[in-house]
């Protein structure tokens, strides 16, 4: 396996006439946490959503450029979208479990892959809940609705639901923005634990979070990737004036 998981070259994206991404070049390494930071509307979520082609759902999107994941251009129209999205999982800003039971929320990921064996599903559900440290809390109420959980538990459940499809990359779109600080901390701990098995890309406008959890950071502004490098360097010794202004809180 090459060191780089995702390679982006000359990526441009338009929503109708509005250019949301401008000439993005970026390489994301395997088994690291890469953070994308920047003010609201800078295109960081849009960039994240090109990695699993979720932008396809929006009308009027045009994309140019190349995004290679494991050397395969995922922007190619011939790509199998369903297996791409299984390989590149996503966790959303607001926890979005289905209005099903806790068990069925995770089983969903298995059922859509055609797994019907009950024993197998039960094993996978247990394993994935364990990997997000929810099993001990929830093992006795797997039948109750996922909507009755706390926000943090919901977000963990959503992560578990993603893990069970055995992705290689996990995209996280501000996964903690609706959580309280304590819950945020717990999710961040979980990320550190997951990092050894997965490549994680996290979008956040919380700079402290980026500096706490990530190994590499990219700073985006108005659709451009201004600076990209090891997190330590970005936060202690930024090369670009705009990065410095942003991380020192002069705007954003």
């Amino acid at each position: 396996m090459s060191q780089y998981k995702i390679n982006v070259t000359k990526l441009n994206l338009w929503y109708k006439d509005f250019q949301a991404l401008k000439d993005i070049n970026l390489s994301i390494k395997s088994n690291l946490i890469t953070a994308i930071i920047g003010p609201s509307g800078c295109g960081k979520s849009t960039l994240l959503r090109t990695f699993n082609r979720m932008n396809d759902l929006i009308e009027g999107v045009r994309i140019k450029g190349e995004v290679l994941i494991d050397g395969e251009n995922i922007l190619d129209s011939k790509i199998d979208l369903l297996s791409l999205r299984k390989k590149v999982g996503m966790v959303f800003q607001r926890p979005n479990p289905f209005a099903l039971s806790i068990f069925e929320n995770i089983a969903f990921s298995l059922r859509i892959q055609g797994i019907k064996d009950k024993k197998k599903i039960e094993t996978f559900v247990e394993k994935s809940l364990k990997s997000v440290f929810l099993w001990d809390e929830l093992k006795d109420k797997l039948k109750s609705s996922a909507l009755s959980l706390s926000l943090e538990q919901k977000q963990r459940l959503c992560i578990a639901r993603t893990l069970v499809t055995m992705p290689e990359v996990i995209l996280m779109d501000e996964p903690c923005s609706s959580l309280d600080p304590l819950a945020t901390l717990k999710i961040e701990e979980l990320l550190q634990y997951l990092k050894k098995d997965y490549t994680i890309v996290i979008v956040t406008h919380n700079m402290q979070q980026a500096s706490r959890v990530s190994d590499e950071t990219g700073f985006m502004l108005l659709g451009e990737l201004i600076e990209f490098g090891p997190t330590k360097e970005i936060f202690t010794n930024p090369k670009d004036k705009r990065t410095e202004d942003y991380i020192s809180g002069r705007f954003g």
Partner: peptide, 11 residues
């Protein structure tokens, strides 16, 4: 969000 979540899981 349900729809989005399902698609993102590869449904």
């Amino acid at each position: 969000t349900y729809k989005e979540a399902a698609y993102a899981l590869g449904a």
